[in-house]
């Protein structure tokens, strides 16, 4: 016959489905009543913003969309905020991506920055070169010869027929790179663009990448960094346009608080039941 569990033992062994429901209900709260807590800007995000503000009209910037649709909630808000800022600074944009669904991400980026893109002319102010495969080798090749990787843009127009691309063919023609990713792509740009050519580089990544790239930022290799949804919310605050990331910060706050409470409950139950066993 099984021994009946004490209250403390039960506290240490709560069924996982209970947590799923708690989180599910907790995440609904911001939809019913938004918290709207103040967002303070971290130094890495501020540095990213300040450098983008120094971009001059006509400077060509590369945006590497290295995330799939699943990472839109984390990466897209910051990418959109940076894109808006670059367009307002008068920069010319080259947009590329190593994920097969980059077309969807590009369309979503344009949708989120619709007002800004409406003022631009394709081929003169921005180009979309589309998908590229080949990992670090292709990033290295892009640095030395754009046309060997992208003879045409994503719509089949030869690069030489695009006015903006006339004198653009290598890393040194690019003012800065924004690598927005969920994996190693920023490392490839560090090794193949930043170190050999000195091209300024920033990372817009999922929260998990914050710890990976923080040493690079602190060493001055990255001029700035946006970490996860919070980075997006900070950028939205800096450009004065609260959007998706600002709304999502409520969900982040609630879920993080719930995690802390769950961890505390688990430990209280663990210590109380251990003390009782002794």
């Amino acid at each position: 016959m099984s021994e009946e569990l004490t209250f403390w033992e039960k506290l240490a062994r709560i069924d996982r489905r209970v947590f799923y429901w708690i989180l599910f209900i907790g995440l609904m709260v911001p939809f019913i009543r938004p918290l709207g807590l103040a967002i303070t800007v971290s130094p890495s995000t501020r540095d990213l913003y300040e450098e983008l503000r120094r971009v001059q009209p006509g400077d060509v910037c590369l945006i590497n969309i290295a995330f799939g649709v699943s990472a839109w909630p984390e990466c897209m808000p910051a990418t959109a905020a940076c894109t808006k800022l670059l367009i307002r600074q008068g920069a010319k944009l080259i947009i590329i991506g190593p994920y097969y669904d980059v077309d969807l991400s590009y369309e979503e980026l344009k949708r989120r920055c619709a007002e800004d893109f409406a003022k631009l002319k394709y081929g003169e102010d921005y180009v979309y070169l589309g998908f590229y495969a080949g990992g670090e080798a292709v990033v290295a090749q892009l640095a030395s010869d754009f046309r060997s990787v992208f003879p045409t843009d994503a719509y089949g127009t030869p690069l030489d027929e695009l006015p903006m691309m006339k004198n653009i063919n290598k890393a040194t023609d690019i003012r800065l790179v924004l690598s927005s990713d969920t994996g190693d792509w920023c490392s490839y740009y560090i090794r193949q663009w930043r170190i050999p050519y000195g091209v300024p580089l920033a990372e817009i990544g999922i929260a998990m990448l914050g710890s990976e790239y923080m040493p690079h930022y602190r060493a001055g290799i990255l001029f700035g960094m946006s970490v996860g949804v919070r980075g997006g919310a900070e950028l939205e605050k800096l450009i004065g346009e609260p959007a998706d990331a600002t709304i999502r910060m409520d969900a982040i706050n609630i879920s993080h608080i719930l995690v802390i409470i769950a961890v505390l409950l688990g430990n209280i139950g663990y210590f109380a039941s251990r003390g009782k066993r002794r």
Binding site: I14, R16, F19, Y20, L23, F24, G68, V69, S70, A71, W72, P73, D101, S255, L258, V259, A262, V263, L265, G266
Partner: peptide, 18 residues
Amino acid sequence: GQTLYAITGFYIFSAAYR
């Protein structure tokens, strides 16, 4: 794609507790 990614949050929550 987005649903699958979001579901990991639930696992992380219960895993943190355990």
